[in-house]
Design a protein around this nucleic acid. Structure first.
Lengths: 332, 332
DNA sequence: CTAGCTTAAAAAACCGGTTTAGTCCAGCAG
DNA sequence: CTGCTGGACTAAACCGGTTTTTTAAGCTAG
């Protein structure tokens, strides 16, 4: 591997000139430029990234912190972030936290250690304050999809409330009146907002927002299965469920089927997220689509602006969209 | 941010001593150690990673190169690799190639540029020689799941042939004699080996290995749908299909359903991979499970050994397992 | 008393770039 | 002829560690 000094010697100039020329910080006479160019070519010179980073103090790498990379939602988000980063000459370092606070903090330490220039964080569990405290002390962090309350960093979220409202309203419009909600953690922003939307739909349509059964837990299949099992025991069973996530919806769907009931015949289901597998299910899942791609690009671009000391907006809300498939049936 | 010199001054020693002590390269009298420790604590010293990397010439980062991170199979693999890396103090840089040769080469360049210490590569398209040529010149590369023929780097694959054999044999054992195969690219190692296994099962069971219809294409839903459409036009329709991937299987399943046929009633289906969604389908997909977790850990550990100049085995084959679910029916 | 050996710690070189502050020279105006 | 300006290029400092080589002092044996 050749160094910039070797190139300089080969071209007959100093390393400083070569460096400045290669980084476009100086205009050189054509003859000089040519000699440097050909020296670079002859030696197959490629700057040592490590040296460059040390002297520049930046890594051109961002960290992506998510609870679980394997989760299709995060995987998709990761893919678009990587794509957008690549287009800006940045690399993406990933870390799964598995929902462990300790690992979330470790990621922040990576930032302190100059391992990365910035962090895109997704969390999926309520914060006890620890995270807020630590995130707050860092400059280049962008929060995606889920909030950490009380932290003054740019945030890129979706219209949770409206999505839930829309989904619920859809169920009402096709004739349902007994609609249950199985949602994520109530003390998580997304969980709370989706519940709000669910309630508003009831209110606006003249249904009693207090009557429908609401069960909040985690965004998991297991919880979906357990919750629907419980709800179906009720005297006046729901004829439809709005689920806080597609994972919950799958759990519901599987349990309902185990109980010998039909979807959507006996129970209509609407999910949230539109994970890639939602359309593969039988019946294909009607769900609220999060604009994962836009979310990812927006997140990266916001972080990019932050890193470059440009203006950023405090909070962006991206629109969601109801994708109607086969898991909802008319109720006469 | 404090530097090692500040710590040294604060403790009353030289940077050299502090460095050597902190890296356990020297034994110091308790009193000295104590003074350094407390200076570190007082200043909240954390070594500058960038400087450390430059001087050590390694980044303690590995690259993960896959066609598409969003693909659940790769996402899962990425997650386990990340986990294993983390446990060894390594970070993981990811890049999706989207199947573009150019981007695969870019990843290799990252390695040259000392961006990463090593690379775990997955490719899913036949190589025209370019890749082999470039991979070959690099020391720290491990190939996972799919081969790049003619390259002398460690490889971690699965028992494709046996998996296919097992799956096909299973179909034969439950009474099928008209079994088709819809597989991946024939000039890809996995595609070829799975076809071999499919054929061997026929041979061993006294069925004509030439008679079954075999269609090779890409590992995609689209190809699965197209291929099965074609096969069902045949005079003697297959009663079962062994698919080269779960994606193909889904395509098949969807098209079959569109045609008003039942799975597994009219057509039994076996997939390959056992992607996370395989068990969510209705009917749940019988498929050959790749040991993704072991694959990931093995891949990282092999690369780790390579980086540390330890012995590695040229090629590892991990066992696969047939997961019987509901997409296969008895044939009288 | 001193050569020889240990131990404790530091000086200096090194990793390979980028950047700042000049130097040197040519050309031009006064 | 002098002073000024600007273009072309470079010396040296800097980023912040790690590692090799030295030094200094203390101890032991002869």
């Amino acid at each position: 591997m050749s160094t910039i000094s070797q190139v300089a010697r080969e071209a007959g100039y100093s390393p400083a000139t070569v460096s400045r020329y290669l980084n476009n910080r100086i205009e050189l006479p054509a003859s000089t430029a040519l000699r440097i160019d050909s020296a670079v070519a002859r030696l197959g010179y490629r700057p040592n990234l490590l040296a460059r980073r040390l002297s520049m103090g930046r890594t051109e790498t961002v960290g992506l912190v998510a609870p679980e990379i394997a989760n299709p939602f995060f995987a998709e988000l990761a893919a678009t972030i990587e794509d957008e980063a690549e287009r800006h000459g940045y690399s993406v370092l990933m870390s799964s936290t598995r929902g462990l606070r300790e690992r979330e903090l470790t990621s922040l330490r990576r930032l302190e250690d100059r391992h990365v220039d910035g962090l895109i964080m997704m969390t999926n569990q309520p914060d006890d304050g620890t995270l807020a405290e630590n995130v707050g002390t860092h400059a280049n962090v962008v929060l995606v999809d889920e909030d950490v309350p009380g932290v003054a960093v740019p945030k890129v979220f979706v219209e949770n409330e409206f999505g839930a409202y829309h989904a619920t309203r859809h169920l009402i419009e096709v004739g349902h009146t007994q609609i249950a909600h199985i949602g994520g953690p109530g003390n998580l922003m997304s969980g709370g907002e989706r519940l709000d939307g669910f309630r508003r739909a009831h209110l606006e349509c003249g249904l009693d927002p207090a009557s429908p059964r609401v069960l909040l837990g985690t965004y998991s299949r297991e919880f979906g299965a357990t919750a629907i099992g419980e709800l179906l025991l009720d005297a006046n069973r729901p004829t439809a469920v709005f689920c806080g996530s597609d994972f919950i919806a799958i759990g519901v769907m599987q349990r309902v089927r185990e109980l010998g009931l039909a979807v959507p015949g006996d129970l209509s289901i609407v999910g949230f997220d539109d994970m890639p597998f939602a359309e593969l299910l039988a019946p294909a899942l009607t769900t609220v689509r999060q604009p994962i791609e836009t979310l990812g690009r927006k997140a990266f671009n916001t972080l990019f602006a932050l890193i470059n000391k440009q203006e950023t907006v405090a909070e962006v809300r991206l629109p969601v969209e109801l994708v109607e498939r086969q898991s909802v049936a008319w109720r006469r």
